[in-house]
Write a protein that binds this DNA or RNA. Structure first.
Lengths: 99, 99
DNA sequence: GCGTCACTTTCCATGGAGGAAACTCTACTG
DNA sequence: CAGTAGAGTTTCCTCCATGGAAAGTGACGC
């Protein structure tokens, strides 16, 4: 069988976002933006895409007098990411190739 | 360090093409098309993209009275694919994460 | 020479991605 | 409470990628 590659997760920036969020409970919006070296708007849109698929959620909290957004993967998002990684790994190992 | 994800290889269909070509010397165009369940034109364009990056090459040979195209990864293509897989693996393992 | 097979390329319509800038919300400041 | 600034968000727009449909090309086979 060919495990399915998830098109919602696959795009490079989204893959990187998931990889950053997977090992932690949550991460600050600004931290993600800096780590990815992207813009506020680009990140915001990618997060919307992940949230739209039910893969990420956001939480507002005050820190340093300012309200900031904290992002986290939902359980479904974490499952989807792990599944996607498994699919990539299978691909890379030629699992299920008829050749 | 974050190993670089190669945007030429990353798109799902191209990743799958590379995964199919990596373990073999060469593969027939029609076989790729059937394995990927895609159209002639779509496959042809993806192969052009890989060839344009120097990652794949084609050879015409006659088989069954008809001339058919055989596709193979170039050494550079194989290196690029392996590098990309390494980058994906590193991402999945959170290598180099500052978190 | 003609039709056919096996791709290739063109044309077109759709969708994703990102920059710039306008907009919203919240939190301070005075 | 009005005003201002910070932190994202959304809109607008433009560009690039992708893919289907169909026309085009080259090599055979008859």
């Amino acid at each position: 069988m060919t495990p399915a590659l998830d098109p919602v997760i696959h795009p490079i920036q989204r893959l990187r976002i998931c990889a950053l969020l997977d090992p932690v409970t949550e991460e600050e919006f600004a931290a993600l933006r800096d780590l990815l070296e992207t813009s506020d708007s680009a990140l915001s849109k990618q997060l919307s895409a992940l949230a739209g698929a039910g893969y990420a959620s956001q939480r507002r909290a005050t820190r340093g007098g300012r309200s900031r957004v904290w992002v986290q993967l939902t359980p479904a998002g974490r499952r989807a990411f792990h599944g996607h990684v498994a699919a990539l790994t299978a691909l890379a190992n030629h699992a299920g190739d008829p050749d």
